[in-house]
Computed example of a mutant assay.
Amino acid sequence: MFADCYRDKKVFITGHTGFKGSWLSLWLSQLSAKVYGYALAPLEGERSHYAQLALPIESTMADIRDFARLSAALQEASPEIVFHLAAQPLVLESYRDPLNTWNTNVMGTVNLLEACRHVPSVKAVVVITTDKCYQNQEWPWGYREVDALGGHDPYSASKAAAELVAASYRASFSSAHRPQPLLIATARAGNVIGGGDWAQDRLVPDAVRAVQAAKPVEIRNPRAVRPWQHVLEPLSAYLLIGQRLLAGDVLAAKAWNVGPSERDVASVAAVLDGMAEHWPALQWQATDASAHETQALRLDSSLIAAELGWHPVWPLSRALFETVAWYQRADSAHLHTLPQLNAYLHDAIDAKLGWAC
Rank of each mutant, 00 (worst) to 15 (best):
V165M: 15
L31Q: 10
L308I: 14
N111Y: 03
R178D: 04
T129E: 10
V211Q: 02
F321G: 03
S156M: 09
H334M: 09
L338Q: 15
Q75I: 06
E76S: 14
P227H: 00
S48E: 04
D147P: 08
C133G: 04
P98H: 03
R188L: 13
E307C: 11
M1S: 13
G37C: 10
W139P: 02
W284E: 08
L308S: 10
T129K: 09
K34Q: 09
A255C: 08
N111D: 13
R117E: 12
V217D: 11
R318G: 04
N221W: 10
Y327P: 00
H336I: 06
G21C: 08
D66N: 11
N257V: 09
P312W: 01
A189K: 06
L303V: 12
G242W: 01
W310Q: 06
N342A: 15
Q200G: 12
Q75G: 13
L203V: 05
R329S: 14
I128E: 05
P154H: 03
A73V: 01
P315Q: 01
R244L: 12
L338G: 10
I349Y: 08
T337E: 14
L345R: 02
H16R: 09
P179S: 10
A185H: 05
S172E: 08
A3R: 11
A51V: 05
H152Y: 10
S261I: 02
P216L: 08
L272H: 04
T130E: 11
A187C: 13
D273H: 14
A54I: 01
Y134N: 04
V110A: 09
E44L: 11
S168N: 12
S32Q: 11
T109Q: 15
S261A: 14
V119A: 13
Y134F: 14
C133W: 02
T287F: 02
A54S: 15
H230K: 05
Q243I: 00
A296D: 15
A255Y: 02
E218N: 03
G45P: 13
Q30E: 15
Y169I: 07
K20A: 14
R223L: 10
H334C: 12
M1Y: 07
Y50G: 09
G142T: 01
S78V: 12
H278A: 09
R329F: 14
S267D: 05
H334R: 06
Y50R: 05
L31R: 01
A51W: 06
W228G: 00
A266R: 03
L335S: 02
N100V: 03
D63E: 12
L345P: 03
A68H: 08
P312H: 06
C116M: 07
I349H: 07
V258A: 01
G196E: 01
A41H: 10
N105R: 09
W279C: 07
L239E: 07
H152M: 08
I219Q: 04
I241A: 03
L149H: 00
I57K: 12
G190R: 02
D66I: 03
N342S: 15
K215E: 15
L320E: 08
Q137N: 12
V127M: 14
M61W: 11
V110G: 04
R178V: 03
A160H: 08
S317N: 12
L353R: 15
G196P: 04
V271D: 06
T186S: 15
A187V: 11
P205V: 10
V204D: 02
K20M: 15
R298S: 12
L74V: 02
K254M: 07
L203D: 05
H177C: 11
V126F: 00
